[in-house]
């Protein structure tokens, strides 16, 4: 642990609590034990100043690292930066060129293959006021396909000596594995299925995911989320307090009240 380069000044992460993407970065900070601080703000303000001065694209997360003067956005780019600069003992990455790029490959797959499609499924399933079955089906099918690709890759991976755990690259957990957790964590909600249904036929992906959510770093991340959601008067699923169900929330949105 001692060889880790811990930044002197806290790295600031800008986030809005409900969505999964910012928690990807917090998870990494927690797992590396880095010096960081959270700047939590309301989702209604992501496309406004001052945040758009930090990220012209108006999406969370973004980071400001006072130790280097760098401002950076897109969680994938933040992952690569943090790992390159601060994971000096290479606990969550690999030294060899090939393995390093395999980690990057899975990170890109997460960024382009998992995130956008899980996000669209969530939108059409919960937030869009009118039900469009073909759109829900399209994105639900894509989620299952992506989970299938992951399950296949894990099935082909050599189980680690000792606990027999399977990881995407090089026999140990890396940032590439971690990047998938925040969206997978929301699968029951996104797919409107029970946990068993979500993972049916995907034993390797399930074991992989469940191993990671047991980590103290993930649990701490979710404690921070719970606290910050509460601060903004939001329940766990993003629905404002006082509204019981998603259906009720959806009806309110449909009536234009939210």
């Amino acid at each position: 642990m001692a060889t880790k380069l811990n930044p002197l000044k806290p790295i600031r992460v800008w986030l809005t609590p409900p969505g999964p993407n910012p928690w990807k970065v917090v998870f990494l900070f927690e797992e590396l034990g880095l010096n960081y601080e959270i700047k939590s703000f309301s989702f209604a303000d992501v496309k406004k100043k001052p945040f758009t001065d930090v990220n012209p694209n108006g999406r969370v997360p973004a980071i400001e690292d006072p130790n280097t003067g760098l401002t950076l956005w897109e969680s994938g780019a933040i992952y690569q930066y943090i790992v390159e600069l601060y994971d000096t003992d290479k606990r969550l990455t690999h030294e060899a060129l090939n393995d390093r790029h395999l980690c990057n490959q899975w990170l890109h797959f997460q960024m382009s293959g998992q995130g956008p499609y899980f996000g669209q499924a969530g939108w059409f399933q919960h937030l869009h006021p009118e039900k469009i079955p073909s759109a829900i089906e399209r994105y639900t099918a894509e989620i299952k396909r992506v989970l299938g690709v992951l399950d296949g890759a894990l099935a082909a991976a050599k189980p680690a000596a000792g606990d027999g755990a399977r990881w995407l690259v090089g026999g140990k957990m890396t940032f590439a594995d971690m990047a998938f957790v925040p969206w997978d964590f929301r699968l029951a909600e996104v797919l409107l299925q029970s946990w068993d249904e979500v993972w049916e036929g995907l034993p390797h992906a399930r074991a992989w995911h469940e191993r990671m959510v047991e980590l103290p770093s993930w649990k701490r991340s979710m404690e921070h989320r719970a606290r910050l959601m509460d601060e903004q008067g939001l329940q766990w699923n993003g629905v404002p307090k006082g509204i019981e169900t998603f259906t009720e929330y959806e009806e309110k949105i449909a009536r234009g009240e939210q």
Partner: peptide, 15 residues
């Protein structure tokens, strides 16, 4: 690192 922001912006957003 800024190149990587835009690269991931394309990969996760534009594409």
């Amino acid at each position: 690192y800024e190149v990587n922001s835009w690269l991931f912006w394309q990969m996760g957003g534009l594409g």
